[in-house]
């Protein structure tokens, strides 16, 4: 279980996260939904220690505070948005590097590599890979280890359709194995399709935490998009652009 308490983040004067309180229970597919620049990525990066949040907040994972710690990351897989891998590094070497640094075998390595057809460019350096190939490796690196939490930043962005389908399946699979999958998205159809619960994040604030189906039921809408539109107009009549 992840508990986030009054988490804020300033970049200089700019406030990116504004007192976020959020609980993500185990074994769910949880979506952070929000427009670009709403602070979704910053929230994920705070969870991973990539960004240091303002000291007033707190993040608890498995009953322990994780701010400034590193050992909890053994239980976390991360799939960044648009990863940049060193150009001379070969795919095989990067996978080995990850295994060495995690001091663990990538138990799902073979299966994923086969499914994603990574074998074909296993010995190529990243400088020679296409964007799609890099994304496949990105998926591999995130899912090849046995971790109880998976954090995915806009996972389907720029993926070709067949891979998107595979990834979604993978996420559901992990959930059914009892793992927590936390991902960000600005695509409502996607959230509606796969997420058990979602948090609506706008300008660094959480507006609601709810199951997408429940939101649609309450608003009597056929799509999440419509439900959110209704929700948003009621909550904040001045703001129409979500």
């Amino acid at each position: 279980m992840i508990t986030i308490q009054s988490l804020s983040k300033h970049y200089g004067r700019q406030k990116v996260l504004d007192g976020v309180d959020l609980t993500v229970s185990d074994g769910v597919l949880f979506a952070l939904l929000g427009p670009n620049g709403s602070g979704k990525t910053t929230l994920l990066k705070s969870l991973l220690g990539i960004v240091a949040p303002d000291p007033s907040g707190e993040i608890i994972f498995n009953n322990r505070s994780i701010l400034g710690k590193k050992s909890y990351k053994r239980h976390v897989g991360y799939m960044p948005q648009n990863p940049k891998f060193p150009p001379h590094l070969k795919v095989r070497e990067l996978v080995t590097l990850f295994e060495k640094l995690r001091q663990k075998k990538g138990v799902h390595k073979e299966k994923l590599a086969a499914d994603l057809q990574i074998d074909r460019f296993w010995h190529k350096p990243f400088g020679e890979l296409s964007g799609g190939m890099s994304q496949k490796v990105n998926i591999l690196l995130c899912f090849m280890f046995e971790t109880s939490l998976l954090i995915l930043d806009e996972p389907t962005l720029g993926l070709d359709p067949s891979i998107t389908f595979y990834l979604k399946q993978l996420m559901r699979e992990k959930k059914t194995e009892g793992k927590t999958v936390l991902f960000t998205s600005h695509v409502m159809a996607e959230v509606e399709e796969i997420a058990d619960r979602m948090a609506l994040l706008v300008e660094g604030k959480i507006y609601t935490v709810i199951a997408p189906q429940e939101m649609m039921r309450q608003r009597k809408s056929k799509t999440l998009e419509e439900a959110l539109h209704l929700f948003w107009n009621k909550t904040n009549p001045d703001e129409k652009n979500i």
């Binding site: 590193k70 960044p80 060193p86 640094l101 690196l141």
Partner: peptide, 9 residues
Amino acid sequence: FHEILVALP
């Protein structure tokens, strides 16, 4: 790339 490495333990 360091960002990715930081996410490792």
